[in-house]
């Protein structure tokens, strides 16, 4: 796994704190996902978790099913789905295996386009 080059990061948290303290991660819903789940975000108390697991946890925290808008039947990202970690597409990190750290912001977009 590689966390290098991820933009928007501040000073890394103290290792001990990171290990034992709870970590708040904000998962933000955009475009038609927001219309679907009728909320802008969900805050999860997690640490060292993959995007894949974070999505499952976010789904459990939201009553309306939304994962089918971003993942296919095999659990892979649908073509055109955007999952951004601090503004960087996970495809240019470690995909759904990208590990989310303290204070990260995860933005979810189903396939979208315009111009």
């Amino acid at each position: 796994m590689s966390w290098c080059g991820r933009p928007g990061k501040g000073v890394l948290p103290d290792a001990a704190q990171s290990r034992f303290a709870g970590t708040m991660i904000r998962v933000r819903f955009f475009t038609i996902l927001r219309l679907l789940v009728k909320r802008a975000d969900v805050i999860l108390d997690r640490r060292g978790i993959s995007v894949r697991d974070l999505l499952d946890d976010a789904q459990r925290a939201v009553p309306v099913p939304f994962l089918h808008k971003v993942l296919d039947d095999e659990g892979k990202m649908k073509r055109g789905t955007l999952i951004l970690v601090n503004g960087r597409h996970v495809q240019h990190l470690d995909g759904l295996d990208t590990i989310i750290e303290d204070g990260d912001e995860v933005s979810l977009f189903p396939p979208g386009g315009g111009g």
Partner: peptide, 8 residues
């Protein structure tokens, strides 16, 4: 649909 995509 693009405002938030491009801003984020």
């Amino acid at each position: 649909v693009l405002d938030s995509i491009i801003n984020q």
